[in-house]
């Protein structure tokens, strides 16, 4: 039986809830996974109790104050046992997964959506195909969120291990986001607008709904390329961000192949478009053929009433 190690996904306040999904993914290899919590303050590891780990190690180091790929990989490598390692597939954790695998001279498989009998399946060609690979020996695997159910129970306390690594990069400046809203890569609900919104000013209607339901606001490439005020950081798609939230609401987006590539794995998709033939409708769980001017006020009122 392979020893499996899970690297906790962190927020500023503690262990991210999606870590419990990583533990379920790790359990497909049998046994009770060891959870490593990279932290500067060991008490943060207490938030991992109840996520199903067989044991919890608070890997405590100043290295973890800011992300540095080299320092993090070294500090985690020195406390993680040999075995298959599971990480989140967030951009930072994919970077860490690759660096950690290289440190151990083993391979990394990114963006797993299924793990069964040492066979790991991930989307390739931006989700236009699925690829299954067979792994032989310890491997680092990053796992997409919202796929595996969350594990529960397990170890009731964490042990603390001090660790360290050499930090290579140094922070010159934190450049705060102009908006307080979540980034599309962090959000569980996303409402995106395309060129069908008519003007960048009309994105205020998306923002109002986003604020009601705690969503991030995204955009299609067409919208980003056409309108200066819509930044590339909002772009969902092949040359933007790949997202898989619980709910994706596409407004005035036709569903070009490059947009679908970035959001087709969302759990539920709502499409609002005036063109009944728009390709986005083939991927929507709920499709509304209407202009945004007609649909958004109704949607917003209903959501406001529900969120009350």
């Amino acid at each position: 039986m392979t020893q499996t190690i899970v690297i906790a996904e962190m927020t500023t306040n503690g262990v991210h809830s999606s870590t419990a999904e990583l533990i379920t993914a790790a359990m497909t290899f049998g046994g009770e996974p060891t959870l490593i919590v990279p932290c500067t303050d060991a008490s943060l590891a207490d938030s991992a109790v109840g996520m199903g780990a067989g044991s919890i190690i608070a890997a405590k180091s100043d290295v973890f104050a800011n992300y540095d790929a080299s320092g993090w990989a070294a500090a985690i490598d020195s406390v993680a046992p040999v075995g298959t390692v599971i990480t989140s597939a967030s951009p930072q954790s994919k970077d860490l997964a690759a660096r950690l695998a290289a440190k151990r001279n083993i391979s990394v498989v990114q963006d797993a959506v299924k793990i069964q009998n040492n066979t790991v399946t991930s989307p390739v060609y931006s989700g236009k195909a699925m690829q299954s690979v067979s792994i032989n020996g310890p491997t680092v695997i990053s796992v997409r969120s919202n796929i595996f159910p969350a594990a529960t129970g397990g170890a009731s306390s964490a042990s603390v291990l001090d660790t360290t690594g050499k930090i290579e990069t140094s922070v010159q400046e934190f450049m705060a986001r102009a908006s307080q809203r979540l980034d599309v890569s962090e959000a569980n609900i996303i409402i995106s607008g395309g060129r069908g919104m008519g003007s960048p000013d009309n994105f205020s209607h998306l923002e109002a709904i986003a604020d009601t339901i705690g969503a991030a606001v995204g955009a299609s490439r067409a919208a980003v390329d056409t309108w200066e005020p819509i930044p590339h950081s909002m772009q969902v798609g092949q040359t933007g961000k790949t997202v898989n939230p619980n709910l994706y609401i596409a407004v005035g987006i036709s569903g070009a192949i490059q947009h679908l590539a970035g959001m087709r794995s969302s759990k539920y998709i709502v499409a609002i478009n005036k063109d009944a033939d728009a390709p986005i409708f083939q991927h929507a769980d709920y499709g509304i053929v209407a202009t945004w001017e007609e649909a958004l006020p109704v949607l917003h009122d209903s959501l406001k009433a529900m969120m009350g």
């Binding site: 498989v109 195909a129 998709i269 053929v289 001017e293 958004l296």
Partner: peptide
């Protein structure tokens, strides 16, 4: 290589969703 290709496939087709006409359906 210790990681070897088993197979590639098209993603499973998504079952048809529900479709509505007109903005009032948003409720």
């Amino acid at each position: 290589s210790s990681v070897t290709l088993v197979d590639q496939s098209l993603p499973p087709a998504k079952p048809a969703g529900k479709s509505y006409q007109g903005g009032a359906a948003a409720a």
